[in-house]
């Protein structure tokens, strides 16, 4: 089948590439753009390791074709830190020991960015439901919840940091 040309913006940078229609977005990001922070865990829309932001909304990049991404704006974990400064969520995962092996962490952070964007002051239950599409096999989630709470608190204290991503 013939390839198609797509242009996507990832972390503020525009990329134009030829892709086979059947190429999944996660493969495009990892193999064509060499942005390997986005992980492939289950390959079956269950684990959330491949979560990225599409026009600000968290999606599972294993369940979209790269051709569908034409013209859209994405943020991956590589675009989250700004000017050498960790995003409050990255800082939260570090400070609260929100990771052990780290495989789920990029997806957790990308999902939590949208969660806090829609609900800046979530309850513990709302955080747990909010990350229910992301699996972690190490932590038992307790410290992940704390990491999100850490970030929520920090972002409430310095609201300017919240909007930074949207300008990417």
């Amino acid at each position: 089948m013939s390839k198609q040309t797509i242009t996507v913006t990832v972390n503020g940078e525009a990329y134009t590439e030829e892709v086979e229609p059947r190429m999944l977005l996660v493969h495009f990001i990892r193999e064509k753009l060499s942005l390997t922070g986005t992980h492939i865990g289950c390959d079956s829309t269950s684990c959330g390791a491949c979560t990225i932001l599409m026009d600000g909304k968290s999606i599972k990049s294993c369940t979209m074709f790269a051709v569908q991404a034409n013209g859209k704006h994405f943020t991956t974990i590589e675009g989250v830190a700004q000017n050498g400064q960790y995003h409050p969520l990255q800082e939260g995962f570090k400070e609260e020991h929100g990771l052990q092996c780290g495989f789920c962490t990029p997806g957790m952070i990308m999902r939590a960015i949208e969660l806090l964007d829609k609900n800046p002051n979530p309850t513990e239950e709302e955080i747990r439901w909010g990350i229910s599409g992301n699996l972690c096999r190490c932590t038992g989630y307790v410290n992940i919840v704390k990491a999100v709470q850490y970030a929520a608190k920090k972002m409430a204290e310095a609201p300017k940091e919240k909007g930074a991503l949207n300008e990417v």
């Binding site: 959330g48 968290s58 599972k60 949208e114 599409g133 992301n134």
Partner: peptide, 9 residues
């Protein structure tokens, strides 16, 4: 239905 990421699409 499924999870938040799925429901976004």
């Amino acid at each position: 239905i499924a999870d938040p990421q799925v429901r976004n699409l």
